[in-house]
């Protein structure tokens, strides 16, 4: 029965991975930029919730909303400072531009918060069915992830601004001809991607201890998930997140837990080679 417990844990966590990956894949889909600052933004999201909770005594889930808004702002600022000038340049430029943002955030974060692990001391207890125990914080994280995904899709498919984002993702030049201010839409999209990263980070903070460096792990997982679900496909990212969460839940039943990343990254490379559009459907 312990295995089932792992499985459910993994699955619930998979939703949170999915949100993080959705941010990465949204940015890739709209502007073909791999955001190497994704991890630090996830970590900043964790710290956002942590600080609001521990300094102001705010409920962590309320704090999540403020953190998400701050993520939007941060993303837009990052876009205008670091990305806008290299958006047409070869991939190496945008990769290194986002990496320099990564260095700055990690540097500032380390100076401000050190690298001692923090955690949010806010327990909601757990649910028990027979022998299976599920922490409530994980259930809430999964539900919140579904809500974030739904809101993202409502935004993309039900609002004019969302339509602009899709238009720019589809064909930037054509969108510009139609009078869409493409650069501002790119900035907004980078902001949205960062919001999702910050939200994922906030949810992670309610489950695991974290440091300013711990975003890196989730960034790498986001790569794997993004490729699994098809880069540029947000819903694919959510499903990919679930798949990864499930894998992480299942593999330990057969192999030592340390084999999980080996299989994850091997899978990642194989999918890039044989199904570069992802396992679930084709977009773009």
């Amino acid at each position: 029965m312990e295995n089932l417990s792992f499985l459910i844990d993994g699955l619930l966590l998979g939703f949170v991975y999915g949100v993080a990956a959705m941010g990465l894949t949204l940015i890739w889909g709209v502007m073909n930029v791999i955001n190497l600052a994704h991890g630090p933004i996830i970590a900043l999201g964790s710290f956002g919730v942590y600080l609001l909770f521990s300094r102001l005594g705010m409920n962590p889930y309320l704090a999540l909303i403020f953190t998400g808004a701050a993520g939007l702002l941060l993303g837009i600022v990052i876009y205008w400072i670091a990305i806008n000038r290299v958006i047409e340049a070869p991939h190496l430029s945008s990769l290194l531009a986002t990496f320099s943002v990564n260095m700055v955030i990690i540097g500032l974060g380390t100076a401000a918060f050190s690298t001692t692990p923090r955690n949010i001391d806010y327990s909601l207890g757990s649910l028990t069915f027979n022998t299976i125990t599920i922490p409530i914080s994980r259930i809430i994280a999964a539900v919140a992830s579904i809500i974030f995904t739904a809101v993202l899709y409502l935004f993309l498919y039900r609002t004019t601004l969302g339509k602009y984002v899709r238009a720019v993702a589809n064909n930037r030049a054509a969108a510009e001809l139609m009078g869409i201010p493409s650069r501002r839409i790119l900035a907004l999209s980078f902001g949205l991607g960062s919001t999702l990263a910050a939200l994922a980070g906030g949810l992670i903070a309610t489950i695991f201890p974290f440091t300013i460096l711990s975003g890196g792990v989730y960034e790498l997982k986001s790569f794997v998930i993004g490729v699994l679900g098809g880069l540029g496909n947000p819903l694919g990212a959510l499903i990919g997140g679930l798949a990864l969460g499930l894998l992480e839940g299942i593999i330990p039943a057969f192999l030592p837990v340390t084999w999980v990343p080996v299989l994850e990254f091997a899978l990642f490379v194989l999918i890039l080679l044989f199904r570069p559009t992802g396992l679930f459907g084709v977009k773009k």
């Binding site: 290194l96 531009a97 320099s100 943002v101 990564n102 260095m103 700055v104 100076a111």
Partner: peptide, 9 residues
């Protein structure tokens, strides 16, 4: 790290 990041950018 911050200084190096800014310079790189």
């Amino acid at each position: 790290l911050v200084v190096a990041g800014v310079l790189l950018l």
